[in-house]
């Protein structure tokens, strides 16, 4: 059995700027941020504070300007570009604000994409994605195209896509922003119950304070820095349910 690393995510002094000279914009200013395995961590803050840039850096989609990022003990910036893609494919799952489902694929096919990308046979990949969609309550919508699904259903398909290959870190960007309150609550419940495992961590970037009670920790960002982190917010129904 593989030992669970002490930290799922460790960001130390992470800086990121875009552009040079007069056009230089400093987005991250020495961010220190950690997430433990089994944690559902929220990253909150005003628009433009650097939340999305930080999760992009954590996910290896952007390079840092300075500082280091370690995922499960692996410094991802030391990996070659090719290996970083492979690391991301194996270890990360994504849930996007706009779902980003492929409109030409059915729900089951969309959820199977990470497995297909990993080289799994189409039939095997679809079997696994269908099984997961059943768990997420979409057994009757598996052959529907995204255009025929509601926002909540699309986000559940996106969640299935993020979970299907059993990644160790799931990164969610405003997963409830395009949903009404009840649907957002349902999606967060699914995320919390399906994604959070002892060896797996989840980072959620959100503005939506109606779902803060799902968080184990909330990191508050402002102007490119983590200003403070609060553990187990009061009235955390999720934490209470899991404690």
């Amino acid at each position: 059995m593989t030992a669970v690393p002490e930290l799922a995510v460790r960001c130390a002094g992470v800086e990121k700027h875009f552009g040079d000279g007069d056009a230089r914009v400093q987005v991250l200013r020495g961010v220190d941020f950690t997430v433990k395995p089994g944690q559902l961590s929220f990253l909150v803050g005003p628009s433009g504070c650097g939340k999305t840039t930080l999760i992009s850096v954590i996910a290896g989609l952007l390079d840092t300007t300075a500082g280091s990022v370690e995922l499960f003990g692996q410094n991802t910036e030391r990996l070659s570009a090719e290996n970083r893609v492979l690391f991301r494919r194996r270890n990360l799952g994504f849930v996007f604000q706009q779902y980003n489902l492929l409109p030409s694929l059915t729900a089951a096919e969309n959820a199977a994409v990470p497995l297909l990308a990993a080289g799994l046979k189409r039939r095997d990949a679809l079997d696994r994605s269908r099984a997961l969609l059943v768990r997420l309550g979409l057994e009757k919508r598996m052959d529907a195209y995204p255009s025929k699904l509601s926002g909540g259903q699309q986000q559940r398909v996106a969640l299935a896509r993020a979970l299907v290959h059993e990644p160790r870190l799931i990164v969610c960007d405003e997963p409830t922003a395009a949903l009404d309150h009840a649907t957002g609550e349902a999606v967060m419940e699914l995320l919390a119950s399906s994604a959070v495992q002892p060896d797996r961590a989840v980072i959620v970037v959100t503005h939506d304070n109606r779902v803060f009670h799902f968080a184990d920790t909330i990191a508050h960002m402002d102007d490119g820095r983590i200003t403070h982190t609060s553990d187990r917010p009061p009235n955390s129904s999720f934490s209470a349910a899991h404690s």
Partner: peptide, 16 residues
Amino acid sequence: LKQFGALKAIGVTNHR
């Protein structure tokens, strides 16, 4: 492009 971006993020290599 958005779809290709999503595929890249998910871990589809440039080669693929």
